[in-house]
Amino acid sequence: MQATLTALVAKAQTDLAALHSRPEFEAAKARLVGPNGELTALMKQMGAVPKEQRPALGKLINETKTRLQELLDGALRAIEAGELQAQLGPAVDPTLPSPDAGPGTYHPLTLVREEMCRILRKVGFTVADGPEVETEYYCFDALNTPANHPARDAQDTFYFPETARFGNVSKKTPDERYLLRTHTSSVQIRTMLKGEPPIRIVSPGRTYRRDTTDATHSANFHQLECLYVDKNVTVRDLKALLDYIFASLLGPETKTRFRPHYFGYTEPSFEVDLSAQHLPKVKKEWIEIGGCGMVDPVVFSGVGYDPEVWSGYAFGMGLERLAMLLYGIDDIRYFYQNDLRFLRQFA
């Protein structure tokens, strides 16, 4: 009997190790410990065993039963592990690249624009928007541009035929022509006409000049302008804003300076230079970065603000120029080619 039990365990050990699936396992389990299984058959023979041998044999059977259960559990674990392995497949190579597309990238002009807008939002400027197709009034007249100023020439500005009609771009006077805005300053005028001071806006956007495209010029470019209208706004406030913007953008070692200049819509007017020699590719001490000034009283009168009460400043700059400075890009045309090898560098 004892030998039979030992043989049963030894056979089970061999058989169970060879199992690969649950049905095989269930069949083997039934064969060993099921109601019609081999162990059950042996246990039924207990009755034929002499009484004095029964305790020892009972113990032996119990041990066999435990041992078989261990073997069955082990076999089940092995099968489960095998199943899991089959489900998982081989281990991944984490160094392989993802075959999915991506990641997407923001255009560098968007990155620079949004960074500027964030900087300006912190000091209370909100982002304004306006049409790219404009009229002579909003682009020139309201900004105190003299009637014979070269900027108005068909040589320098894109116009539309007199018959052109734009359903959602309002004209001030019926006989003025539509044009493509040469600066985003027209947004300042529309904002002032629409609302009441105080006003604190930043207007980024596309602008157009009738320029031949080369490494530093583009007929289509982007500007960003700020306008602040309030009581008692001073030249010193304007300088403080510029200092703040460029220190935020380029680091505290950046310096700005004003040079007196002339613009029709501001008085006094300045050109803004930037000293940021810690940036790569910057060789000159001072780089011209934009224009600014105190809003001319004529502009205020034109939009119905009393220049005796209200004062303000305006600042404008080219976004491409700023992006070129920030990233060390030396050809403006790259912004409009959208070569992926270019776009991927800034995200």
């Binding site: 997407g104 990238t105 255009h107 157009y208 289509n220 959208n338 992926l340 776009l343 991927r344």
Partner: peptide
């Protein structure tokens, strides 16, 4: 829309209006 598209693996371009 730019956040959406870039978030869905698009590369943002800037082309001429004209």
């Amino acid at each position: 829309v730019t956040d959406y598209l870039v978030g869905h693996d698009f590369h943002e371009c800037v082309n001429y209006t004209l």
